[in-house]
């Protein structure tokens, strides 16, 4: 059995064929393929079956350098991953996680992994030991350096229900940013574009929060597939502000692809969401890093 062949024809079920998936030029801007605690490289290799099977053109890992659990602490597989990002640059890119609790150290890491390394952006992870969200002034030197490097800026956000009284965002971890935090930061840097991750955690609220801030894009990976969510986001923000991520292997490409495929977006807008918007955002640094790509 060819592991890439579909045993049945997806078109018979109203789904794109593999060739059509490839034609969408899907860039997975939210790839967790190196997140395993014991064997991150093994996880990456195992997941490649699904990357190729579902026609993903490029994967952008969010854990290049360190780990999401300890962004500033070197990981044992850092050297191998760095080498992999160079060798497989035709289809694999890296974004390095930073920690706004430690802005100086974060900037040092950005110099090493972006200016002198293969990475194309930074990621704010979901919480940090000092409880510093992305709206805090600590972030200003990080964003200034990111802007200078042309690095993409991905900010994990959620609005977890919790607390007393219960409310959206009151269940967040210390330092876990909300979409409101992203807006506060984006107002301070109106010429820099930010990706608000996970559609704010709760897309019905997250879209409303970022709507009036035009330099904030919305990425909607890593949450359950809610029918109508992408239609809503496109209606309120415009398809030009939406970015797709796969969040695999912990999330299924089936989950994330379905969010767009069930939407009423035109084929042209689907191309933008599946990769065109991110390519435009990242094109300066992709060019500078000599990463081969078609816009």
């Amino acid at each position: 059995m060819d592991p890439l062949a579909f045993a049945l024809n997806p078109a018979d079920y109203g789904l794109p064929t593999r060739e059509e998936l490839v034609a969408y030029r899907i860039w997975d801007t939210h790839f967790h393929g190196f997140n395993d605690r014991t064997d991150p490289l093994g996880q990456f290799h195992a997941n490649n079956l699904y990357v190729r099977r579902m026609g993903i053109e490029r994967s952008v890992t969010l854990e290049a350098g360190g780990t999401l659990r300890a962004p500033l602490q070197p990981a044992a597989h850092d050297a191998e991953l760095r080498e992999l990002l160079v060798q497989e640059r035709a289809w694999l890119s890296g974004i390095t996680p930073i920690d706004p609790g430690f802005p100086d150290e974060s900037c040092v890491k950005m110099e090493a992994w972006i200016r002198r390394g293969p990475c194309i952006g930074i990621k704010y992870v979901g919480g940090n030991s000092r409880g510093i969200p992305c709206s805090h002034p600590n972030n200003d030197p990080i964003i200034r350096l990111a802007a200078e490097l042309g690095a993409t800026i991905y900010i994990h956000t959620w609005l977890k229900v919790g607390g007393t009284p219960r409310g959206p965002g009151r269940g967040n971890l210390p330092g876990e940013s909300t979409p409101q935090d992203v807006v506060v930061l984006a107002r301070r840097f109106p010429d820099v574009r930010f990706i608000c991750g996970h559609s704010g955690g709760d897309w019905e609220l997250g879209v409303r929060i970022v709507r009036a801030q035009p330099n904030v894009l919305l990425e909607f990976a890593g949450s359950d597939p809610h029918s109508g969510a992408v239609d809503f986001a496109a209606r309120e923000l415009g398809a030009d502000r939406l970015v797709w991520g796969g969040h695999g292997p912990s999330r299924s490409y089936a989950t994330e692809l379905a969010k767009v495929l069930e939407s009423d977006l035109s084929p042209a807008d689907r191309l933008k969401v599946f990769g065109g918007n991110f390519r435009r955002l990242a094109s300066p640094i992709l060019r500078r890093e000599g990463i081969p790509f078609e816009l």
């Binding site: 579909f6 789904l15 359950d224 597939p225 692809l257 379905a258």
Partner: peptide, 14 residues
């Protein structure tokens, strides 16, 4: 959920 999610799961796994 979108109907497509379950359908795509059938194709995602070999």
């Amino acid at each position: 959920f979108p109907v497509e999610t379950g359908l795509l799961r059938l194709f995602e796994s070999p």
